[in-house]
Design a protein around this nucleic acid. Structure first.
Lengths: 227, 227, 227, 227
DNA sequence: GATGAATGAGCCTTCATTCAT
DNA sequence: GATGAATGAAGGCTCATTCAT
């Protein structure tokens, strides 16, 4: 019973405090997605989180800190998603496919979150702290992609620079996210997947040729999570 | 004499006005690149442009309008660059190469300008006006890339979806820009080019295989324009 | 046993309550001395007193009330000090000397307490309540000084306005406190004493001439109480 | 005519700007005198100066800076007053008298200004900047008093420590100011003067005995300047 | 046409106070 | 009796915009 209680709603004070923090971070994401980085105010955040104004400073000390924590939360969610995705499959090929599927899954790849990612990236140059937060995770992701590409390249004996191939893949997915951000009406999850698969099929034909539709079944099972 | 005058310094009132406008737009770009979109203020812009505070409102009516004009200027510069690049070569293959070279040329692809592009993209979702400004140019660019890919595909009889190939290429370049933005220390113009060429070589082998180094001579001729 | 208990640590609820009150008042004095009146916050006070935030309001109802009680505590301490000092000696002359000695004794005349006195005096005009708290004690002190000066004047047959002499003495000590407050590096307890004694020697030569060093032995016995 | 204009009201922009600054400093003094240091807000200052809220930050950058400038203004006014007073008389005795007269003249010694002085002194310990502003002027004043006392002592061959005598005089005037601050109803300019003269007459009898009423004529000519 | 002092709305932040636990 | 999360009012400050000079 205790466990059931814990699973449902916070009871202890510590849990409640943590819940409020999460609530504020979620509200921050929504406000940035809706109004943009420059127009995000603590008043809007606290209003959307249904708490008083001063509470943000109580929990996060400053607006800047709230933003850092929000970015950290986003970063961790993304990292957890691809780590989890990559854990299940056995082969490098399947791991790559799972990685792509995770990258375009509605949980991380939806208009709201992509908008927030681009909002942070837009401010990244002038705020080194933001880079410090996501750089390690980005590097880990790049490593993973490169390693998997390397394994596939070795398996198939492809005469290719794995690092270059990996970089191409990563940049392609980032660019596809930008497309979702800028022209959402022309974005389709399956098209994004096929764009990447077409690239993989071209460089790793023995592994990925004909796999353009592998993902469809899995993707169909996922539900759209956008607000 | 008129030409000499024009070339040296603006004398006419209209010319002076235009010069001040350009000065302000340039200052805006620099401020956004240095301080970020959220921290860009008219005070900083006017100070950097060495003009009085009230002049910005005089020329652009409002801050928002200045930003729109800045984005328009950026968009036009980019459009002019790729149009000019694509005009010279004869074949679709060479046009594609020229397009890529233009995309990574120091004039449009340098830290400052990329920072401004991402700053605008970061705010794009919440400010439809920005989209209105750059959407047509983006669409024209996408059309061009797709047409060129289509021509190459037809020439070579490649069994490939030209739209998909074009989308992949565009997204890859966007992603490479993001890499320059986020991890400039690991960005190299030639590597960016090779990343794209590797992709083209994979999907259009007869046209691009072995062309990985075509660009080097041309690129070497260009000088770095970053501040 | 009761006495032993009282001497060691508070056990009764009433005692505990009183102890906490004193703790909070002491913390208030320290915070005002360290950060100034304007920057004194209940958060700092409760933190320094090692109690929870809400406890201050519980004990003193409001911040204003805590300040009033602090001033009252300070006032009573000062009044007790000079009353005690004046009780021992027999003659008016010796009482005056004892009064001065008490005034410059480390217990009441140290940087921290002087800082708090001046902090309260700085706010006195705009907060009549503060005046209400210390005015009676100040008046009693002035009365005492005047009475003693009067006695000395009568004894010596000095042709002097005792009220004026007393006022001069009181003001001189206040001014010496200000010197400790503003230029502590140039303040010395013995110099302060000698400054006053020089004044007394000038107006009451028969009583105080040559007494400039009377205080030294006594003063040497006292230990510095500053933190 | 130009001169007349300048004397009456500001015309040029620079003059107007300076006038606004002075207006704000004057308003600051009034607010501190009325509400105390802790309750002084920029809103009250701007309201009393009949200007908009943001103007204070425009002219003084920050509240702290406004306070520093106010203290500086007060300090300079006081210094100018005693310098001017000390300039006219020929003898050291008359200079000392003039100094005292200046110290208690309504222009510098009135409830409002004294309240502000004590407000600053109350915060002095915790804000070293305040000390930096007035320390040099205070030292100069102390020097002057000591020099004059020294001259008088030498002239009269008084067997006295001039530094001690000067310190006593300075502290006495400071204490008399405190009396005006705390118990204004019992303060009278002439009594303050007589208190000091009595001290001087006691230590420098040949110079000051009988001079207790020298000041009355002059003082009577001055008008009360309090608001 | 250009300047910059002045305006005022809106933001982040602090902090005394309350109250459920 | 004690805790500390939560509240909300108020303050300092920034900044786009206006307008007299």
């Amino acid at each position: 019973m205790d466990q059931a209680r814990k699973a449902s709603a916070p009871v202890t004070r510590v849990e409640k405090k943590q819940a409020t923090r999460q609530q504020l971070i979620a509200a921050t994401i929504e406000v940035i997605a809706a109004d943009g980085f420059a127009d995000m105010t603590l008043a809007k955040v606290s209003q959307r989180a249904r708490v008083s104004r001063g509470l943000v400073n109580f929990h996060f000390t400053s607006k800047e800190q709230l933003l850092v924590e929000t970015l950290r939360s986003l970063t961790e969610e993304y990292r957890d998603a691809w780590r989890k995705a990559v854990a299940k499959p056995k082969t490098a090929r399947d791991k790559l496919l799972a990685l792509l599927r995770a990258d375009f899954s509605p949980k991380v790849c939806n208009r709201k979150k992509i908008a927030v990612w681009y909002a942070f990236w837009g401010e990244a140059k002038s705020r080194p702290t933001y880079l410090d937060v996501c750089a390690p995770a980005d590097a880990a992701f790049a490593d993973m992609v490169e390693r998997l590409c390397g394994e596939v390249a070795e398996e198939g004996g492809y005469p290719i620079d794995a690092a270059l191939a990996a970089r191409g893949l990563r940049c392609m997915t980032d660019g596809l996210w930008l497309e979702l951000h800028m022209t959402p009406q022309s974005f389709r999850r399956d098209v994004a997947m096929r764009t990447c698969l077409q690239y993989l099929a071209a460089i790793f034909p023995k592994h990925f040729l004909g796999s353009e539709f592998d993902h469809l079944t899995a993707a169909a099972l996922e539900t759209e999570a956008e607000a």
